[in-house]
């Protein structure tokens, strides 16, 4: 792995962590519930991207799918040598569904909150204190 490649990968890594930090900031500090939800979706997606990124491989990568049903031994060896890590992809598919489900539910709740309170500002939606 050359220095350039290493620098690029580190840069990507730092950028992902930055997205995590910024979205968490938005999640905590922004008063609007829908804004919070958008930030939450970005937060979750970034976590997903992070694990996929860790499963990447820098030797002529190909997707982890055997291109044919009747492979030869050499083809399988070539495939194993080049394909990227399938485990993070499996985990992320699960996580995407879960994030999406939670997000959907949150949006339903936000709409219901608006029906009760007439606002989406968390500082005004505060019948509960303590």
């Amino acid at each position: 792995m050359s220095m350039l490649e290493f620098t690029l990968l580190m840069y990507c890594y730092a950028a992902l962590i930055a997205v995590l930090a910024i979205s968490l900031y938005g999640l905590v500090r922004r008063p609007n519930i829908l804004k919070k939800i958008i930030c939450l979706s970005i937060f979750g997606d970034t976590a997903n991207t992070l694990i996929i990124f860790l499963g990447f491989r820098t030797r002529n990568p190909i997707p982890p799918i055997v291109p044919t049903l009747t492979p030869t031994k050499s083809l399988m060896m070539e495939f194993t040598r080049r394909a990227v890590d399938p485990v993070p992809q499996c985990l992320v598919l699960t996580a995407i569904v879960i994030n999406m489900a939670v997000l959907m539910f949150l949006i339903f709740l936000a709409i219901q909150i608006y029906r009760h309170y007439g606002t989406l500002d968390v500082r005004k939606v505060a019948r509960l204190r303590g």
């Binding site: 968490l24 999640l27 979750g44 976590a47 694990i51 949150l106 019948r127 509960l128």
Partner: peptide
């Protein structure tokens, strides 16, 4: 109150589980 409590719980809880997911990332 129920909806409001649920919303708070849901936002906080899903942040927590996402953080756990990041922990899984590092472990893996």
């Amino acid at each position: 109150e129920a909806v409001e409590g649920s919303l708070k719980y849901a936002i906080v809880g899903s942040v927590a589980t996402t953080i756990y997911f990041i922990a899984i990332t590092f472990i893996y």
